[in-house]
Computed example of a mutant assay.
Amino acid sequence: MPLRVTFVAAARSSTLHAERFEDDLPLDQAGWNGVLDASPALLPLAAAELRYCAPTPRSRATGDALGYAPLVQLALRDCDMGRWRGMTLGEAMAREPSAVDAWLADPRGAPHGGESLLAFIHRVGEWLDTRPVGDGGQIVAVAEPAVIRAALVYALKVPPSTYWSLDVRPLSAVALVGRDGRWHLRFETARTRHSRI
């Protein structure tokens, strides 16, 4: 029986704030409201045998609010953006335009002094491949959208540049089914997800 890992994207803080690299802001009222709105569809995932989350305040708070009581996994942390941490893409571009261009063009590059996109994808993929399988089972993991994009690129074995084409919305869920480097993306109706996780 295959393992099922369902990723849930953490709720975001207010859309009034620009999206920043490695943003550790906690959930604000808009984020909490989003969790409440999404909870009917996401609460059934609490039945998973293993429940994890990224170490960000938003991921932990989202998992706790949904009743997952998740275990923090450092491997699910966001990409290390080095000296760009806390900046928006626009701010980094204004300060270091050629470095940002190089980073966007080369998945092996880390001109910010942190982690390359390729290293980030492999880190998340290694976490995915080392989940306990037993006789199958179900896992839920709450993480930042960037982490879920990295997991999808790894699992589907697509070029790293695909990362930039994936749009993972807050409080969305996607399931990967398989094990040991052989993963399949699974889309389900809400009814199926409620009945089978």
Rank of each mutant, 00 (worst) to 15 (best):
A10M: 05
A41K: 03
L166D: 09
R169T: 10
W164I: 00
L156I: 11
P132C: 10
L76G: 02
P57L: 10
G86M: 12
T189N: 02
D101C: 10
R20T: 13
S13Q: 01
R186P: 00
D129G: 05
Q138F: 08
F21V: 03
L89Q: 13
L42T: 00
G181P: 05
D64K: 14
P145G: 09
W183C: 07
L76M: 07
R131Q: 15
H17G: 06
A92T: 05
P44K: 13
A190Y: 05
E188I: 00
R20G: 12
Y68H: 14
G113H: 12
P70R: 09
D106M: 09
L118M: 13
W84V: 07
A173E: 10
A46N: 13
D101F: 12
P44A: 11
L45Q: 09
E126M: 00
V133K: 11
L117P: 06
V177L: 14
L128I: 03
R58V: 07
Y52L: 14
R20N: 11
K157T: 13
A9S: 15
P2S: 11
Y52P: 08
P159D: 15
T88I: 01
R85N: 09
T62I: 12
D180F: 11
G114Q: 06
A151C: 01
T192K: 07
R51G: 07
A47N: 14
Q73N: 08
L185Y: 04
R149I: 07
R12E: 02
D24F: 02
L27K: 02
L42H: 01
A94V: 10
A61H: 03
S13A: 14
A150E: 02
R95V: 11
V147N: 01
R186F: 00
S98A: 13
P26W: 03
C53M: 08
M81R: 04
V72C: 04
A190Q: 14
S39C: 08
A150L: 07
R77P: 01
L43Y: 03
L74Q: 15
Q29C: 02
D167L: 05
A30K: 00
E126W: 03
L45Y: 06
V168W: 05
A141S: 07
S59Q: 04
R108I: 02
A119S: 06
L185V: 00
L152N: 06
Q138T: 15
H112M: 12
I121C: 05
R182Q: 14
V140Y: 01
G90V: 11
R169V: 03
A75V: 00
G134W: 08
A54N: 04
A65T: 11
R4K: 14
A110H: 12
L66G: 08
P159A: 15
T192Y: 09
V133F: 09
R85L: 09
I197D: 14
T130Q: 14
R191I: 11
V168S: 04
A41F: 05
D135A: 15
A143R: 03
R193L: 10
A18S: 15
Q29M: 12
G109N: 11
A155W: 06
R20L: 06
